[in-house]
């Protein structure tokens, strides 16, 4: 089956790009402030964004960039699969939550607790877009294009899946990044072939040289 990358996006604490083209975002080069500035630029009304942890904010923003002016969404559909990968799981939020458990200052925050699982980001994207298909989250030591290729390929081994949203979404300490691909069966004349080589090149172009 021939698969294509119809659109891809990359966001870190310094810049955001769609299909390799940088967006103009006015915001401080600090991850919280930059992601808020990007949210403002997108002109989206979704107050829940401000309640999310960084991992979910990254996934949300990347999926907004992928789907803006494009694929029909906001109506329930079961033909889309969301697959996420990262290295640090939800460790950043886990540490934040742990800090609220200290003796003498024991006020655990329910709204922080709900993000102490990494796969919440996939759920946030699914809820926002009303995607009812499968979601999965894999922890990997480093960005692994072979693993992404394999997971996406398997997701298409049925007659139901029409698109896969695959991402490497990572946040820990001062840095963060999300690299998200929309992979589809449809063949467009400008579409990028879905291959390990292309995944590697597109990621490196943004991650290393962006």
């Amino acid at each position: 089956m021939e698969l294509n990358i119809s659109k891809y996006t990359y966001i870190n604490q310094l810049f955001a790009s769609v299909n390799g083209k940088k967006l103009v975002v006015t915001g401080a080069p600090e991850k919280g402030k930059f992601l808020t500035a990007l949210y403002r630029k997108l002109n989206v009304e979704y107050p829940k964004f401000f309640k999310m942890d960084t991992l979910s904010k990254l996934g949300f923003l990347a999926s907004e960039l992928i789907f803006e002016n494009g694929k029909q969404r906001f109506i329930p559909r079961e033909d889309g699969v969301i697959i996420c990968f990262n290295r640090s799981s939800s460790l950043e939020t886990d540490i934040l939550f742990q800090s609220s458990l200290e003796p003498g200052n024991f006020f655990p925050s329910p709204s922080v607790f709900v993000y102490t699982l990494p796969n919440i980001v996939a759920g946030e994207i699914a809820i926002r877009n009303k995607f009812l298909g499968e979601t999965s989250f894999y922890i990997s030591e480093k960005f692994n294009p072979e693993q992404i290729f394999s997971a996406v390929d398997i997701a298409f081994q049925n007659n139901k899946t029409n698109f896969v949203l695959a991402s490497w979404v990572e946040s820990f300490e001062l840095s963060c990044e999300v690299f998200m691909l929309l992979v589809e069966k449809k063949t467009g004349k400008d579409a990028i072939p879905f291959s390990i080589k292309c995944i590697t090149e597109l990621f490196n172009n943004e991650h290393l040289y962006g």
Binding site: K51, F107, P108, S109, P110, S111, V114
Partner: peptide
């Protein structure tokens, strides 16, 4: 979740 957060705030 906000309701739970308000309970924490009160305490």
């Amino acid at each position: 979740i906000d309701a739970l957060e308000l309970i924490v705030l009160m305490e």
